[in-house]
Design a binder for these strands. Structure first.
Lengths: 130, 130
DNA sequence: CCTAATATTAGACTATATCCAATAGCCTTC
DNA sequence: GAAGGCTATTGGATATAGTCTAATATTAGG
């Protein structure tokens, strides 16, 4: 019982306005990490968790692995299996030249996105302060 | 002929790094518009087109109407049919108290999003300038 | 009457991310 | 040596946001 109107409750508690459904920008974030250093998926997850990317929530492993697969398909990153180490086999990813070009495009895109969001925030503040 | 590797071509031309798949933040943008003034859907489309929201691309009508329906379901906005005017009937939307609360939450969320994006841009620049 | 502008809706699809579950190797500890 | 925990990756189903194409309907202008 008591799960009626669950969608109503969710709509209030998990409203987008609190950041729940915001794009986590995984593609550029992963490219940034790999531009600094080659890493395997699990360490990418840990690195992303350290960033304040997820509004206090844990990173979703599955989503990160899926993004890695997509970036690999697009030729932005490549991997080799690493079997020498202890533990299960891991894919070690490194960025390609295409990935670096993509990252430099991201800088331009993020800068204009940054401005758009700044403008929105200022506008919203002006309205609500009235 | 010549449509093989279309996905490859799309991946290069329409890569996310050029802003194609960025969240347009329609919900807060619509709330901002309606906090200033009640409007019907079509004029919201036109107002959003004037903003530099879509990276030079046209706003998508369908998406905006869907967002309006969603905001209405969540109780953030309400509408009345306006039949008096010339032309086809139009839904005139106005923001509710819940919508105003939602918008004030959006300010906080957008400010932290703003910081995250700023940090990413700076980090990416540092790496690529090396 | 035809067309363009206004105004809204529906279906199918893509992109991004989430939730839950499964698999599999290795290590510690009881 | 069995049990549980950490490392590491994958798959299915779902949610959210947005796009593309098309359809419907009213009215004004030529």
């Amino acid at each position: 019982m008591s799960n009626k109107n669950n969608s109503m409750i969710d709509a209030n508690i998990k409203c987008s306005c609190k950041g729940y459904n915001l794009d986590k920008l995984l593609q550029p974030n992963i490219l940034i990490l790999l531009a600094k250093k080659s890493l395997h998926g699990y360490s990418i997850i840990q690195a992303l968790e350290k960033k304040d990317l997820f509004f206090g929530e844990k990173a979703d492993n599955t989503g990160i692995y899926r993004t890695l697969n997509k970036l690999e398909e697009k030729g932005m990153i490549r991997f080799e299996w690493e079997l020498e180490n202890t533990g299960p086999a891991r894919k070690v990813y490194h960025i390609t030249d295409e990935g670096l070009t993509c990252l430099s495009n991201w800088i331009v895109t993020l800068e204009s996105y940054h401005k758009i969001i700044e403008g929105m925030t200022e506008e919203a503040k002006l309205i609500l302060d009235k």
